[in-house]
Design a protein around this nucleic acid. Sequence first.
DNA 1: CTATGGCACGGATT
DNA 2: AATCCGTGCCATAG
Length: 472
Amino acid sequence: MLPSTNIRQSPALRTLTTAHLTQTMTLLELDVLDLNQRVESELSSNPALEIREERRCPICKQTITNNRPCPRCSAPTSLSPDDPIVFVSHIDDFQERRSSYYEEFPEESTSRDKEDLPTFVLKQIAPDLQPQDQLIAAFILSNLNEDGLLEISIVEIARYHHVPISRVENILQLIQRTEPIGVGSPSPKEALLVQLEVLKETQQVPSKAEKAIREGLDLLSRHQFPDLARLLRVTVKEAQQIAHFISDNLNPFPGRAYWGDIHHGNEAPLSVYSQPDVVLSLLEGYQESPIVVEIVSPFAGLIQVNAEFRRLANRASPDNADQWKSYLERADLLVKCLQQRTHTIVRLMRHLTIIQRQFILKGDSYLLPSTRANLAEELGVHESTISRAVANKTVQLPSGQIIPLAKFFDRNLHVRTALKEIVLNETKPLTDSEIAALLKKRGYPIARRTVAKYRAIEGILPSNIRKNHTDG
DNA sequence: CTATGGCACGGATT
DNA sequence: AATCCGTGCCATAG
């Protein structure tokens, strides 16, 4: 607490220091989308802020005019696999690239040609519709966003085409049930529910899954299992299993259904996350490519205090000088906090990509256990800073998978994947003790009881119910 | 008797 | 201070 005696009368200074701390912290724990909202509202309410359109590539120092990310420009020089290329990109760059991915790799696993999502869907349903309804369907499909979600309301569609709402609803239901299932839903929640519904026809689904989606989607995506468990009145473990099931089998953004691991036809690791906060990728054409780290940031680096505004503020007449000044201070504060936020994340990610390169490239079993605490020590920041930086954020791996950043701090992921592998390769169902013994040989000395726990987390049934793996 | 899951405790992590 | 995690003990099911 600051001594109030020698603080200048202006309350602004006082709030500036404390506000700086609190705002830096709160901004740090927001994900891109929340931050985006926050920045936008600030931007519209504070005339001192402006967006600088031109940006400089942190590597080649040239002005970036188009949306091409810059790491490629510097690719030929200094390529050490252990030296990640880190840069900050605008959220729009990402959106842009996202849709271009979609066009570049329309589909490889199913018979889909170069057509885009709307055409793809329309072809499937057209035979079942009358010509008039085909028009409506086409209209609906043309209003999908990149995620395959509907951006306008049913009412609007009905009004536009002068047809009853129920008719639109029927068409929409048809659309939602075609591949990719859930397209045309107005929200991720709807999409998930439709998928669950369809899935229910062919296989068993956890009974509480629907409630989890309906009432606990928020908790679900934030991985707040204890809260979810309370909501569903089940144990935390069961809640985790339900969440596991949902993220394994359902996809809140149907338009992105074929992203990432195309090779696993059956269980594409789709995630409940949409917009990653960090995107990791590799340079094409290098077998030992450095990891390209792209920090997706709403406007950071772009947002600045309008210089003209600052000049005018200094010359403002005394009666409204305070107003000018407060705008200016708020703007400075925001800019500074944003910079600090990105700076922290950049440092964090650079470090992580160096330490966990193998994990990022090769997968779960290569994750080296580390804690936020010791990472904080290595970076010379406070633990809580790392905690906040990790909180609520997601990372897109080179494979296309989007995972929570917290997964980098999963202390036993590698053991669990070893366990999964053992069970996958077993010829007869092994008991927990036997598994424990095998794990011990691999250098994971854990108790039999713990094997049971891991099994539960991974959704592996107990040995007496597991059926034999008879390889065909 | 064997294999498993629930509960609860203590130490580590956040 | 709150939460997570690994483990031991014990009840239960087969």
